[in-house]
Simulated scan of single mutants.
Amino acid sequence: MSSVRVDSWVWAVRLTKTRSQATAACRAGHVRVNDQTAKAAQPVAVGDVVRVRLHGFDRVYRVTGLATRRGSASEAAQHYEDLTPPPPPRTERPAPVIRDRGAGRPTKRERREIDRLRGRAEQ
């Protein structure tokens, strides 16, 4: 076996929960093979790079093995290499102005502090 369907592979290596979700992701354009939008029946072979958009984030995988059956998670991890770059570090944000619940609207002074914290300059 030199290739398998991309939707079957995405399901077998546990990137989606169901085969129909994998097919729907392909139809929606969320699966790319070697930087080409993939249809569900497109073959994927060892060495191909598969980019999948899951939960709003792009994940990049290199195919190291062909899987047609869904096995355990440890077995599935042997069929791909994760190439996803690490997310950028979060920036430190100043502590928000915390008001007691039900304390009413902020005063003019408090509103100016809130605007200053949010980066809105006074004019």
Rank of each mutant, 00 (worst) to 15 (best):
I98F: 09
R51L: 02
A73G: 10
G47H: 10
V49W: 00
T107A: 08
D100I: 07
G102A: 08
R53Q: 10
D58W: 15
C26R: 03
G71S: 14
A22G: 13
R116W: 07
K17E: 05
Q36M: 07
S8M: 11
N34V: 04
R109Y: 04
P88C: 03
W11P: 06
P94V: 13
H30Y: 12
F57I: 14
D35E: 15
D48P: 01
A76I: 01
T18P: 11
A95N: 06
T84Q: 04
W11I: 06
R118D: 14
K39H: 12
M1T: 08
A73Q: 12
P94D: 13
S2C: 01
A45P: 02
Q78H: 13
E92W: 02
D115V: 00
G56S: 08
G104F: 12
S3Y: 05
A38N: 03
R105W: 12
P43V: 08
S8F: 00
P43Q: 02
S2W: 01
R59K: 14
A38E: 06
R93W: 11
T16E: 06
T91N: 07
V33H: 04
L117C: 06
P86W: 05
Q78Y: 01
E75Q: 15
A41W: 01
R116L: 15
R14V: 10
S72Q: 10
V97S: 10
R69D: 08
T16F: 14
R19V: 10
A12Y: 01
T16R: 14
P85A: 09
D100H: 14
G119V: 03
Y80T: 05
R105Q: 09
L66D: 10
T84C: 07
A76D: 06
A41C: 01
R59Y: 14
D35R: 15
E81Q: 15
T16G: 02
M1P: 11
D58M: 07
A77K: 10
R112C: 03
R105Y: 11
D35W: 04
Q36I: 03
G71F: 04
A67M: 13
N34Y: 04
P86R: 03
V33L: 11
G56Q: 09
D100A: 15
I98G: 03
A73H: 13
A28N: 06
V46T: 13
M1H: 13
A41K: 10
I98W: 11
D100W: 06
R109D: 11
P96K: 03
R69M: 05
L15N: 02
I114G: 03
R109A: 15
A76S: 13
V10P: 03
P87W: 02
R70N: 05
I114T: 05
L66E: 09
T68N: 07
D7A: 10
F57T: 15
P85N: 06
V4N: 05
T37G: 03
A40D: 10
V31H: 00
R105G: 10
V4K: 05
G47V: 01
R116H: 09
V46G: 04
V60W: 11
R99M: 15
G71H: 05
R112H: 13
W9Q: 07
V6G: 01
R62F: 07
V52R: 01
S72F: 05
T64W: 00
Q42H: 12
K108S: 14
R111S: 08
A95P: 00
A40Q: 08
A40Y: 02
R105F: 14
V52M: 04
T16P: 06
